[in-house]
C-alpha cells in the first residue's frame, strides 16, 4: 500500500494530556473538595482528628462502591434505579441465611449472589426485551423492596455473627476502615477497566452511539448486561457492608440511596445522557459529598437542611458551566 503523496500530517494531539487534565472537570471538583476540607477544618476543631475523619468515610463508602458501577452503566447509556432496593433484598436474604444458622462466609456470598441475580434480572429485561432501563428499574425498585417488606413486615433481623461485623466495623490498619480499603481497591480496578481496556472503550462507544458501536463490532447488549451484573454485585457488596455496620436488617434499609448514588455520579461529571465521564471524577465527587455531609453534621445541621444543601450543590455545580457558556455567548 502506498501512502498518498498529498497526505497531510495531522498531529496526534491538539493539547498535551497534562494541560487537558488541568482544565478538566475533575480538577475543578478537586478544588471544590479542597475548599470544603479547609472550610470544615476552620468550622470545627474536631474535624482534623484522624479518627473523626475515619468516621466521616462511612458517609460515602457504601454509596461510592455502587457509584463506581453506576458510572459505567450511565456512561453506557443505561441507568439502574433499583440499587437501594437490591441492598434491601440482599440484606433480607442474608438475614434469612443467618437465621438458618449459616456462618459469615455463606452470609456474605448470599448477599453478593442476591445482588448478581437482581442485576441479571434487570439486565435481561433491558438487553433481551429492549425495554428502557429507567422504566424497568423503577419497576424492580418497588419489586425488590416489596419482597423485603413481605418477608420482614415490621420486624427486623438482628443477631448477626460477630465475625460478620468485620466488613462494616473493622479496620485494616490504624484508621483505615475495611470499607474504605475495599472502595479504594475497587476504584483503582474500575478506573483501569473504564480507561485502559477494550471493554471500557466499548462502554463509551455504546453510550455515544449504540448503532455505530454495534456496526463496529462492539457487542453492545453484552457490554450493557455485564454492567447491570456489576451494578447488582456492587449493590450486594454495599448491602454486606451496610448490614454489617448496622448489625441488623430492616426492610427500609438503604432507602433513598439510589438518588444519592446518581447524584455522586452526575456530580462526578458523568453525562446523564451517556457517553462521557470518568472514574477519578466520580471518586472525587464521592469525597465532596462525604465531606459536605460530615462537615454539616459537625455543625449540628439537621438532616433536612443537609439534603437541601446537597440538592443546591448538585444543581449549582452542574449549572455553573452552562451559565458561564451562555454569558459568554450573549456577550458576543
Amino acid at each position: 500500500m502506498t501512502a498518498s503523496p498529498t497526505g497531510r500530517i495531522v498531529p496526534d494531539r491538539l493539547a498535551s494530556p497534562t494541560s487537558r487534565a488541568l482544565k478538566s472537570w475533575e480538577s475543578l471538583l478537586a478544588l471544590v473538595a479542597i475548599a470544603i476540607f479547609i472550610a470544615n477544618s476552620f468550622a470545627s476543631p474536631y474535624f482534623l482528628d484522624p479518627w473523626n475523619l475515619s468516621d466521616a468515610t462511612f458517609n460515602f463508602t457504601e454509596k461510592a462502591m455502587i457509584a463506581l458501577a453506576m458510572a459505567l452503566l450511565i456512561i453506557s447509556g443505561e441507568i439502574d434505579l433499583s440499587v437501594a432496593s437490591i441492598v434491601a433484598l440482599a440484606s433480607t436474604a442474608m438475614g434469612l441465611m443467618m437465621q438458618a444458622g449459616f456462618g459469615t462466609p455463606a452470609i456474605v456470598l448470599t448477599g453478593l449472589g442476591t445482588g448478581l441475580i437482581c442485576g441479571a434480572f434487570n439486565g435481561l429485561l433491558v438487553t433481551r426485551l429492549g425495554l428502557p432501563s429507567i422504566v424497568v428499574t423503577i419497576g424492580t425498585m418497588s419489586l425488590f423492596r416489596g419482597i423485603s417488606y413481605i418477608v420482614l413486615g415490621d420486624t427486623a433481623f438482628t443477631g448477626y455473627p460477630a465475625s460478620f461485623g468485620w466488613f462494616g466495623q473493622g479496620y485494616v490498619v490504624w484508621v483505615i476502615t475495611v470499607e474504605l480499603a475495599i472502595f479504594a481497591l475497587l476504584a483503582v480496578i474500575y478506573g483501569i477497566v473504564l480507561h485502559k481496556t477494550n471493554f471500557g472503550r466499548g462502554v463509551y462507544a455504546a453510550g455515544n452511539n449504540p448503532t455505530a458501536a454495534m456496526f463496529s463490532g462492539v457487542r453492545v447488549g453484552r457490554v450493557k448486561f455485564i454492567l447491570f451484573l456489576l451494578t447488582g454485585l456492587m449493590s450486594g457488596l454495599a448491602s454486606v457492608c451496610l448490614t454489617s455496620r448496622l448489625g441488623s436488617t430492616r426492610p427500609s434499609i438503604g432507602a433513598g440511596m439510589e438518588l444519592e448514588v446518581v447524584t455522586v455520579v452526575v456530580l462526578g461529571g458523568v453525562s446523564i445522557l451517556g457517553g462521557s465521564g470518568s472514574i477519578p471524577g466520580v471518586v472525587i465527587a464521592a469525597l465532596v459529598m462525604g465531606l459536605v455531609t460530615f462537615g454539616l453534621g459537625l455543625l449540628n445541621v439537621p438532616g433536612i437542611v443537609m439534603s437541601i444543601v446537597i440538592g443546591v450543590l448538585l444543581i449549582g455545580v452542574i449549572a455553573l458551566p452552562r451559565i458561564w457558556q451562555k454569558a459568554r455567548a450573549w456577550k458576543k
Binding site: A3, S4, T6, G7, I9, V10, P11, D12, R13, L14
Partner: peptide
Amino acid sequence: AREYTRRLDLRAAALDA
C-alpha cells in the same frame, strides 16, 4: 489512525479531536 487517515488525506486539527 495516523496510517489510515493520512492515506485518505483527512483534514483535521488533530487526531484526538
